[in-house]
Amino acid sequence: MKIRLQEDVLKDQNLAAAFNRETFKKNHTLVINLMSSPGAGKTTLLEETIKALRNEFHIAVIEGDLATDLDAERLRSLGVKTVQINTVGGCHLDARMIAKTLPDFELDTIDILFIENIGNLVCPSGYDLGQDYKVVVLSVPEGNDKIPKYPVMFRRTDVTVINKIDLLPYVSFDLEEAQINLEEINPQAQLKALSAKTGEGMEEWINWIKDAYRQCTKP
């Protein structure tokens, strides 16, 4: 007998994401899902972002990596509560993994939770974690063709951060071309060009986060 099921394969994942979203909302926690290829500078960007925000906000981090807690240690040294998820080969974080870590946090005391996803421009794009915003970090040595090559990722993100702009004189990366490429894939996306290392452009990024926090905690 044939049964027409028509059920989303990621149904359980989407339920878990909805649960996370509800939990974050109840606790007035802004949640940012940070994605990139390996080495684009997510952790350095997070370190500098935390330094700029920690006097004003209570911040926590969920750190995803295949192995080790090297990144988590870097962030803990800034005095930020960080929970490490090791996926042991898994290529992305999913909503159920995030849900399992939530009891480790006192969410009602946390203003902003950053989730640092696994370094990968493919798989993490398909998984809703229950975040408020998806941010993808692209560093200039990776080249302009990253945006056209991974359109699904860039289409599904709210903000594209172009990192390491201090290296622009040494590599063939064109910011204007990146802006055009992004607009052809995702006209709603915002682009923030910065260098987490030198601090150039950081202010605009930090202000965006502060605005996002105000939006998310509005009654």
Partner: peptide, 20 residues
């Protein structure tokens, strides 16, 4: 103009099965 929306291509679902 960059003003288009996807209408298909993102689906991933179990459509049907046969059981006995």
């Amino acid at each position: 103009l960059p003003n288009c929306l996807l209408v298909s291509g993102e689906t991933f679902r179990v459509e049907s099965y046969e059981g006995s």
